[in-house]
Amino acid sequence: MDILQIFGDYVHLLGMIILLAKLWLTKSCAGISGKTQLLFALVFTARNADLTIRYVSLYNTILKIVYLAITYCTVLSIFLFFRKTYDRKRDAFRIELLILPCAVFALFLNKAFETIEVFWAFSVYLEALAIVPQVYLVSKSKQADSVVMSYISCLGLYRGCYVLHWLYAYKHSPNSQLEHIAVASGVVQLIFYFD
């Protein structure tokens, strides 16, 4: 456990809460990409599939469940509760263009060819790209909602913390291996957020 990692986790959580709070307070999903949220639901489902077979810590288990719960709530809010305000026309990015390459990459580029490892790799690749429909929507509507921008900033800060945490751990711990998949995807992800 590392202070950067914990800070990253909480900033990530804060971002998700900000978005869900915006949805419920304004009762509108204007400016929010339902497709990005759908991708994040897929990301967390794939990554947290190991909840069923592995126990790391109470902190880990609780946050994984909270992340899943918030993301599913957000998806339900967009596609069910406030679907009348969902801007289907503008949120037009074809997500299969993101999902399919990630699935192919996960099958060939993973730590071990096991279900959990492939799921994990898939979740890391897809997380790097999941924000793309949101960025596409913001660029199309030409007006950036400040709450959505705070959400995007939180997610960018979270990934930044994680990448720094990995690099720091690698530098200071002789027996740690640099996880190339995670670091490379993390850097790609950061590029999208700085955009």
């Binding site: 790391v56 880990n60 990995w166 711990s173 027996n175 996880e179």
Partner: peptide, 10 residues
């Protein structure tokens, strides 16, 4: 010094 396992992270 503990090594970092990214699989144990969120």
């Amino acid at each position: 010094n503990e090594s970092v396992d990214v699989h144990d992270e969120l």
